[in-house]
């Protein structure tokens, strides 16, 4: 089995340093890896990225992240990524990584994603240049996620995004802003690959559980939703574990 800890929207700055650390120190007993679904910082500054790296770096389990919209606020997302990468944190954007855990291969494909809306209330790639740019961005992130999901060979595949791939996990948010919280194209990408679990954040007032139209479990792990330092999800429950170097199911 593989146990994945997950949280999003931690918005770290100086005033948050130290708050998560006691729970993070317990991670090796709780989970095999930590996935963080974006909005790592408040404004996406390099200083805030360093605070995040201090708080979530140097852990005894691998840490995999995507960036969120807050992490783009200062237009320093590339520098933020560099700070995190230097701290040993994996940052995905239209890319994937494979972690070898307990003799299993966990694939994680990630993107920030974007808004756009869902069936019956979604934006169209039509009309003004601004609207076509908006929906073009939606489609570009979704295509990047699909390519990343299909790029890995693994025993269990997880999609990690900041924006939501389904409306189910937005329940609790005003209907009027669903189109700014996610898009159906991310859900299509997740369904077009052998995805076992999709994790996202962004919707602070949403709800935790949902499924894509194709039946893939979706979990909104935004910190205000899960109300603890991280949730833990178990995959491959019926499999035999071995040491890292003795892979099974490859």
């Amino acid at each position: 089995m593989i146990r994945i800890a997950a949280v999003g929207d931690v918005h770290v700055d100086k005033d948050v340093e130290g708050r998560y650390r006691p729970a993070l120190e317990q991670l090796p007993d709780q989970a095999d890896a930590l996935l963080i679904a974006g909005d790592l910082t408040r404004h996406g500054t390099v200083d805030e990225a360093k605070c995040f790296a201090n708080e979530f770096g140097g852990l005894a389990v691998p840490v995999v992240t995507v960036l969120g919209n807050h992490d783009h606020q200062s237009d320093r997302q590339d520098d933020v990524t560099d700070v995190l990468t230097d701290a040993g944190i994996i940052v995905l954007e239209g890319t994937a990584t494979v972690l070898e855990l307990n003799g299993h291969r966990l694939g994680v494909a990630g993107t920030k994603g974007f808004g756009g809306g869902f069936a019956g209330a979604c934006a169209s790639n039509f009309g003004e240049r601004e609207m076509k740019d908006f929906v073009g961005t939606t489609e570009r992130y979704a295509t990047a996620l699909l390519d990343a999901l299909r790029s890995v060979q693994c025993d269990a595949l997880v999609a990690l995004t900041h924006y939501s791939p389904v409306p189910d996990t937005l329940a609790g948010e005003p209907l009027e802003i669903y189109a700014f919280l996610g898009c159906y194209q991310l859900g299509q990408a997740i369904d077009d690959a052998p995805t076992a679990l999709a994790l996202h954040g962004h919707a602070h007032h949403g709800s935790e559980r949902g499924r894509t139209p194709g039946g893939v479990p979706v979990r909104n792990v935004a910190h205000p939703v899960i109300k603890q330092a991280y949730n833990v999800y178990q995959l491959l429950s019926g499999t035999v574990d071995t040491k890292h170097e003795e892979l099974v199911n490859v």
């Binding site: 146990r3 708050r19 998560y20 006691p22 729970a23 317990q26 709780q30 076992a196 679990l197 479990p217 910190h223 205000p224 109300k227 603890q228 330092a229 991280y230 949730n231 833990v232 999800y233 178990q234 995959l235 429950s237």
Partner: peptide
């Protein structure tokens, strides 16, 4: 304030 305690439960995904 958001809470930051470690979880006590694991959800099995199937």
């Amino acid at each position: 304030l958001t809470r930051t305690q470690a979880p006590a439960e694991v959800e099995e995904i199937s």
